[in-house]
Design a protein around this nucleic acid. Sequence first.
DNA 1: TTGTAAGCGTTATCAA
DNA 2: TTGATAACGCTTACAA
Lengths: 351, 351
Amino acid sequence: MVAQKAKVTIFDVAKASGVSSSAVSYALNGKPGVSDATREKVLQEARKLGWRPNGAAQSLAQSRTRRIGLVLGYDPQLLSVEPYIMRLISGLGSALEERDYSLLIRMSMDDDDDVSILEDWIATGNVDALLLLNLEIGDPRIDLMKANPQMPCLAIADASLTGGLPTLTSDDAGASGTMIRFLASLGHRNIARVAGPEELGHSYIRDAAFSEITTELGIRYRCLHADYTPESGADATKRLLSVTPRPTAIIYDNDVMALAGESVASMKNVSVPDELSIISWDDSFMNVAAHPAITALGRNVLESGRLAAQLMLKLIDGEEVEDVQEPPYELVERDSTGPPPRSKFAAHSQR
Amino acid sequence: MVAQKAKVTIFDVAKASGVSSSAVSYALNGKPGVSDATREKVLQEARKLGWRPNGAAQSLAQSRTRRIGLVLGYDPQLLSVEPYIMRLISGLGSALEERDYSLLIRMSMDDDDDVSILEDWIATGNVDALLLLNLEIGDPRIDLMKANPQMPCLAIADASLTGGLPTLTSDDAGASGTMIRFLASLGHRNIARVAGPEELGHSYIRDAAFSEITTELGIRYRCLHADYTPESGADATKRLLSVTPRPTAIIYDNDVMALAGESVASMKNVSVPDELSIISWDDSFMNVAAHPAITALGRNVLESGRLAAQLMLKLIDGEEVEDVQEPPYELVERDSTGPPPRSKFAAHSQR
DNA sequence: TTGTAAGCGTTATCAA
DNA sequence: TTGATAACGCTTACAA
């Protein structure tokens, strides 16, 4: 009842209950091997003494830590620009909580660091499973995990990037199609995209999908790579708005760049959505707060996090895990999208 | 060199080096008690075998986990709206990394949960120190920590809320003064504030400071409490814009609400900054991306995180820690602030 | 300088 | 159903 100052161990509980430490262990863990009477007695004494299992001892004995490891790339800019990570952590955390697991986080300063932290965790047994994010093409982490198949590991990425590791796949290609077709259905035939950094795995997937689908639909498409910051988004937008014929719609790979793009349009007196449609990849409060509110491709990141946690727990339990698809993207139509300016003539009206 | 499948222990290293396990331990930990020759030999064999200390065993033997605990309130909305937490985590993580510490995170679903997670960590010894955020007035966590003085604990909050616990104080009162005086110097005599939830400790501090300072300066001040979401920010803005005489400047307690407020102004054809000045408390990419770009009160949250980490490490080392001040807020002037509309007449022009 | 052995607090095996 | 007792892998006091 009362929290004890001195640590109370199972031996204290054993003495108080008048039984051995092993009986106590069985009783406290709900395992067979003790009579109901002593079990009752032990539980009572344990509660009375305020006993709680020592984490390190438990980990040592069971080689199980009840922790899941996540290495975050140290890029304060990216980390704070992207609501994604925090939402993912929320989802992970809430699902882990249900199983009394916690999330162990370390920060890597560069890619080598990233790998060595993972190596450390694998070797020291400090976590029960690993979650891999932001895989790049030919990512060294994949080889590392293949060399250590005993460590459960889940990747969140397009399956083409994960080399056969258990994967929670994001449908970036499908989402690309959704957006292009949405714009096409509004009448747009000349669209542009302000993408994220080229070396990121999902940028690569998106790049490929966009090229393919726009070609297929006979839509003019132009892509500029930026770095997710408002400055880079504004910059790319300025360049795109000076191209002739000017694209009638721009898709931004994140919300900050979309907002920055909308600001540029406003400054240049390019009316949104009358003269220019804007879509943001990944939805957030920013899109709602903007004026006009920005149409966005949203996904339930929280649910992704929960799903990822559940899959890792399965892996830890030794179950087979098939690749699972993230909750699908959904287009949230707001006020920043509309038909292109009088289709045919738009291309001529500016020179 | 090559990663081993089977776990290699100090006994393996001992056998390979032809010495005892304790000699190995001394050698590997750089402690005196072994000759340079054997130390050399042991280090060499350890590397050859790919030995790494087992985390659980080390924790058990030293009662030291090299982990710091952080409980996050599960409010996906707040967590993702606020770049603050992610930036703080980045700062914490980077400083902890330098000392090979990691961050253990759990998610609490409500206040009771919060306390019981902390209790659990204290009792099971799963972390070496705790970081407390978002303290409320009369927060139960303070009593908990006072009842367990053996657990190092740092609070990030105004010192008036932390009941004597080691504290990294944020100067919310001072910051309030900075903003009010800035607006006053521009000529504003009628300002409003869209605040965060009333029950939050720092809202309370800000509320008090604002009332006091505006009274002192003879400035008309009105405050509406919202909940950090764009909807609530937009709502509050609408109400404030319909008050007579209309405030000539609005301060928002976070950036999302500031952006939403700016959108409302734009919709109502209230020109920013000509007719209305806007300031955001806490700076982020949103403010830069907005149009007009939003003047904001920024602070180096990353540095706060690093500072907090260093203080906790000191506490863990048993050093005394005096209360420390967070890096100061700084006003970043952008395009959303300016003098009020022809002072005297502004109040009359609307009825 | 070195090795032996006793913790650290559990879990789990094996006789009794 | 019980209670010794041996892991788990490391640190460290104490002997040699």
